[in-house]
């Protein structure tokens, strides 16, 4: 007999970021934009969730870490 799982299939959340690179908003000063790429606990989202390319995700990582250092964004909340 085939066993079926009762778990509902969970579709992955669509990526947040737009496709164009060279986004000037990826900057540690643009905290309202950066807030979109962290969880409610202020953890960074994975590349899978943000939809950024490798280079953009790396820039995002730097920007969020700089913002955290300057107390513009929380490390944890």
């Amino acid at each position: 007999m085939v066993e079926y799982s009762n778990k509902p299939s969970r579709a992955p959340a669509p990526p947040i970021a737009s496709r164009n690179c060279d986004d000037p908003r990826i900057d540690y000063k643009e905290t309202t934009y950066l807030q979109k790429f962290v969880t409610p606990q202020a953890q960074m989202l994975s590349r899978k969730r943000t939809g950024f390319c490798t280079q953009c995700q790396r820039q995002l990582k730097e920007a969020i870490k700089r913002a955290r250092h300057m107390a513009l964004m929380p490390f944890v909340s």
Binding site: K29, R68, M70, A71, L72, M73, P74, F75, S77
Partner: peptide
């Protein structure tokens, strides 16, 4: 003077600070 805002976490007992760019 860039902004005066509430800090995301307290630094040396300060809850607010002024940023200069």
């Amino acid at each position: 003077r860039w902004d005066e805002r509430r800090l995301a976490y307290p630094i040396r007992g300060r809850r607010r600070g002024t940023y200069y760019l």
